[in-house]
């Protein structure tokens, strides 16, 4: 409590290191790992991914068992390329996207709702550096978590699938493609979430916008009659996942490269807008 412990360094020749990007990145990572709520969201994503994969393995297995006795179902399976089991590990992906997208929103909106932003941007007044550092932390962790959870989900599903005499090869090129594309997709959703959190600066508003884009719009576009909405729904971010993971091009969807561009635009536009607003607005 005494003031005499204060360093007598008031006259200094050099001031000392400033907020270089790697230091800001380290700071953002400390902020990321020291929030219990973040860790809970990450853990629940993993649990949901693994749990849904196990359920899907069980469901797919019993369906295949029935199909063995039912020629119609067998034909339906054959029409899908015959590989039922390959998408089992990523069954929980839409929940992962919701949770990690919300995490992206929260990590930025909470800066503003708690007032932490004043500390953050007083320490690093060039505001884009903490924004980009946080974006990297969010995107990388969303990617890694989805990839690892998908792989674990695959390992957990293996014995279940096995018991139904179905084959699931986690090392097959389609399995690896599904794992990578889904992980990139969830990372993209997390980035969009963080941009939304920066733009609206409000947790509830940010998560509602995210849910609007990823859950409400796809359904609404299907329900509204007319060719325009049918065509427009191809350009929703949720519609990019199936062209990107399809074995062959599915009619009435985008080509894989188009889907990649559309998803890229869905990330770049809100992120750029968020950066402009962050730079311009008062904290």
């Amino acid at each position: 409590m005494s003031t005499t412990t204060l360093d007598r360094r008031s006259i200094r020749n050099s001031v000392g290191p400033g907020p270089a990007f790697h230091r800001v990145l380290n700071s953002e990572f400390i902020k990321f790992r020291t929030l219990m709520s973040t860790l809970i969201l990450l853990a629940s994503t993993a649990i949901v991914m693994v749990g849904f994969a196990a359920l899907a393995a069980w469901g797919t297995g019993s369906f295949a068992e029935q199909a063995a006795r039912d020629p119609e179902a067998a034909a339906a399976i054959a029409a899908q390329g015959g590989d039922l089991a390959v998408s089992i590990p990523t069954s929980g992906i839409s929940f992962a996207q919701l949770i990690l997208g919300s995490l992206g929103v929260l990590l930025m909106s909470s800066e503003f709702t708690t007032g932490m932003a004043r500390s953050t941007f007083a320490a690093v007044p060039k505001r884009l550096s903490p924004f980009l550092a946080k974006l990297i932390v969010v995107v990388v962790s969303a990617f890694l978590l989805t990839a690892v959870s998908t792989y674990i989900a695959g390992l957990v599903s293996l014995p279940i699938v096995d018991s139904y005499d179905l084959k699931l090869d986690l090392g097959s090129s389609q399995s690896i493609k599904l794992l990578l594309v889904n992980s990139i997709y969830v990372a993209a959703v997390a980035a969009i979430g963080m941009a939304l959190g920066t733009i609206v600066r409000n947790s509830a508003g940010g998560i509602m916008s995210l849910v609007g884009i990823f859950f409400v719009l796809p359904i609404a576009f299907q329900l509204i009659p007319g060719d325009f909405f049918k065509e427009a729904s191809k350009y929703l971010p949720t519609s990019t996942l199936s062209p990107l993971t399809a074995v062959e091009h599915v009619p009435d969807t985008l080509e894989a490269w188009q889907a990649a561009l559309v998803l890229g635009a869905w990330v770049v536009v809100p992120v750029a807008l968020a950066m402009i607003l962050l730079k311009k607005r008062d904290v």
Binding site: K31, T34, L35, S37, T114, M116, A122
Partner: peptide
């Protein structure tokens, strides 16, 4: 100007 779910030490550390 603090995220209240973080500890004081971790806030200062970040």
């Amino acid at each position: 100007a603090v995220h209240t779910s973080r500890t004081a030490y971790n806030h200062l550390l970040a």
